[in-house]
Design a protein around this nucleic acid. Structure first.
Lengths: 292, 292
DNA sequence: CCGGTTATGTGCATTATTCCACAGTACCTG
DNA sequence: CAGGTACTGTGGAATAATGCACATAACCGG
């Protein structure tokens, strides 16, 4: 059964009993209706209607089609109702992705947002892999670094995570603090294993500090933090974590460039939906209280 | 939801995941598919797919539509199966109409035909009203009189019911038999109340016999027969009934014109269906044995 | 019996739809 | 990194669908 429109036409004819009545309901010319009926009957090889001067009377085949098409019409109507309302209510899945380092902040927000919307299922994806909005893998993404400029992505600025250069007091006790860049070669640094890392402060590190001074290298930010706390050397620690570790000593005043900016990114197709808008609004409100 | 074809297109896109794949399945150009999707999304005001270079990924709305359209596609497929097979098997209703006088012959045939086809429901309509084939009121009609020449009706000759002019022997005892037409005025006749009755022998009666001689008039053929058997006068009795009533005496040799011809009539749309053809075949076979 | 109304059905002009060809982009593979 | 592949997207030509006008037939009411 190809050409569902002809089924719909036949359905209306069976309902109305006349070609003219069906044409009026369908908003087309009655000649069109006649041709649709002729076409579908020819294709099926079955007479759906008996034609007479007072209208079209459904045969048994036509009555059968009427039943099926009636059900179809109902289901389509319900579907339209759901689809139209779908943009308005916050339900189904909400898929959010971010860097793993933001999980301590994001998770409580997501939990409360889920509690505010009982019908909602929250999927919070973190990982090395970049979850792609254009493939429908996520509704909202938190991206760090330069301004994302993918086509079809709606970008707005999110939190800024200040980062400073710190060392554990045990390290300072042993090595002292560098007076200036000229002392960097005589110190131990904790850095990223990948010299091409994208974070601005890591670029600063590889540009400013001699490679041989970076004695401890790791991939995971959490690991680097542990190394610094263990006194392995001087390294970058987010300001928010510094407050939890009073044993950390600031090595030098932070450069503005070190501040990691992050961005809220949504796909243009989903950005205007109420579900995404509600979450973005709540997320931005909540992030006001974050201490970064 | 108008335009069911676009639903079908969207359904195939959701299934295939690509516009090109859907276009191939649908047998249309991929540009057509793109425009259908754009059209239905614009109409609904909801994005059904997220577009990317590798294809179209359904949104939640698109996934919802996929479910509904999947069900619709299944139902339509089943419908087509039923409709195509419908012309071939003998099932559903078989509506037959005839003069009430043929009921003693038709009823046994219909009963046996119903027994031969367990799925069949027989509706045998008799009555004064003319059941109209073109309105779908009956599949097969037995019509008497002149050849029906309605358009869209398929006509074939059926049984001929010979009729003779008889009187009860008690009447003959009292009044004797007319020697010829000149005696008709002195006799009592049983005729139809309507002088314009269509049956040829009734026309002969009103043309040949003076009106005042038709002393007993009725509308129902069965009533007329009862009157003749009661000795009310001379009248027409079908030959088949004469054999059951030995007390009837033939008044004059039957004229060829008196033979009532009957016709099997079907609507052209239904005539070629197996159900109607099977019944016509069985009816014509059975009628060979009828004694009329 | 006879207009008036309501239907279906058909040729022709118009409109909308579809197809075609080509451009552009992302992704994969050697 | 370059070539190949598979996909989307778009402007203009070809085609199919639609609308229109008119003919025709049946029925209804007076």
């Amino acid at each position: 059964m190809e050409n569902w429109d002809e089924v719909r036409t036949a359905y209306q004819v069976a309902r109305a009993g006349t070609v003219s009545g069906a044409a009026e309901v369908l908003g087309v010319h009655h000649a069109t209706v006649i041709r649709h009926i002729d076409s579908i009957e020819a294709r099926l090889g079955v007479k759906l209607f008996q034609r007479h001067a007072r209208g079209y009377t459904p045969t048994e085949a036509g009555a059968d089609l009427l039943m099926v098409a009636q059900a179809t019409d109902d289901q389509f109507s319900q579907l339209v109702g759901r689809l139209k309302g779908q943009g308005d209510d916050v339900t189904g899945e909400l898929v959010v992705t971010s860097l793993a380092s933001l999980a301590p902040f994001m998770a409580p927000v997501l939990m409360r947002f889920q509690q505010m919307h009982p019908g909602l299922i929250v999927r919070y994806l973190t990982g090395d892999r970049l979850f792609r909005l254009e493939y429908g893998e996520a509704h909202v993404a938190v991206r760090a670094g330069a301004v994302p400029n993918q086509p079809d992505n709606v970008v707005q600025p999110f939190v800024q995570q200040r980062t400073g250069l710190y060392a554990h007091k045990d390290y300072v006790k042993r090595h002292g603090l560098p007076k200036g860049p000229e002392d960097f070669g005589k110190h131990h640094f904790v850095g990223h294993d990948n010299p091409n890392a994208r974070a601005p402060f890591l670029k600063w590190l590889s540009d400013t500090v001699p490679p041989e001074a970076i004695r401890f290298r790791a991939i995971d930010p959490g690991t680097m933090e542990q190394a610094i706390l263990a006194g392995a050397g001087i390294g970058f620690v987010p300001e928010c974590l510094v407050q939890q570790h009073p044993d950390l000593v600031q090595v030098m005043d932070p450069l503005p460039d070190w501040t990691a900016r992050s961005w809220l990114v949504t796909h243009v197709d989903l950005h205007r939906t109420n579900k995404v808008q509600s979450f973005l609004k709540y997320l931005k409100e909540s992030s006001q209280d974050w201490v970064l």
